[in-house]
Amino acid sequence: MSTQTLTERPARSTLFDGVTRYIPIGATVALLLVLYLGGIASFPKFDSPQVVAKLFIDNAPLLIIAVGMTFVILSGGIDLSVGSVMAFSTMCCAWLTVDAGLSAPLVVGLVLAFGTLWGLGIGAVIHYFNVQPFIATLVGLFLFRGLTLQISDTDVSMRDIQFFHWGMEHLVEVGKIRTGGFWLPNLSFVAFAVVIVAFVVLHYTRFGRGVYAVGGSEQSALLMGLPVARTKIGVYAVSGFCAALAGVMAAMGTKSANPLANVGAELDAIAAVVIGGTLLTGGAGFVLGTVAGVMVWGLLNTLIAFQGDLSSWWARIAMGVLLLAFILLQRVLARSGEKRRT
């Protein structure tokens, strides 16, 4: 019987470790503050609460797909199909209700089920046939853009379907915008609900912790006896569901379906996830960071809109620069971590 006790304090203090872990997300939050305060200092009406509220109206679909993308990236994968799946879902909403005359709730149910099934299928291909996620989801990018265009190559309006007006109804209205009030529609709350559910799932369920474990080391997760197949396929199902849901929300937001909508949305989502502090190699990150990442993207666009004579390309360039900064930051943190451990 051993009576000896081995004590080891962490090689880095837990406090310090806490700090390194939160450096990326801390940087994102600081960036948000700088952007917001900068906006208030430069533009007279920027301090209206509706400016913030509008972030969650305009970017609700992006937020939803970014949350789905967070699951995939945390597990060490990538999903390029979300933009096309989203456009396809919006188009299906329009087509099945306007042209085929199905009832709108049924259509929404079908679309969501379809998105999930697609995710399950491609996840299975990725796991069982060991196809690179990049290539497998590329199939979805092409396929659903093509199918969307085949349904219609022009805009389809859904104004006449009462159901799709639900999304923009004011759920919360505080005062009048003119007098410093704000309002938020239902679809923003759908996005919030998605974030909360994702947060709880990722942090408090076995599936969620499994996602982190698989992203940390798939080999280890397998040898620890974790359900790797279920986890890997599951994240793509989550992402597929989120993309379909985002498509439905986009349908409600614009009440029309554009076959070329959301081209490149997958890139925006990936950028938001990385700027939110999630490691592109998987295993580390927070879904709340993704919210911050999406807000950075939204605020950049808002600032440019207020500026008036700047064009939207600056937002893209800024996103690229931020992405570079965050990737280099992660690289530096990873290297210093390696050094400290040996």
């Binding site: 709880v200 369920t205 076995r206 912790r209 982190y212 474990a213 940390g216 280890s220 620890m224 359900p227």
Partner: peptide
């Protein structure tokens, strides 16, 4: 063969965590 991005406790109990309901 553990995942070093998770905590010590999580590594000890990964896949068989004590739960309250689903959490």
């Amino acid at each position: 063969n553990l995942t070093d991005n998770l905590s010590v406790a999580e590594n000890l109990f990964a896949g068989r965590e004590p739960r309250l309901g689903p959490f």
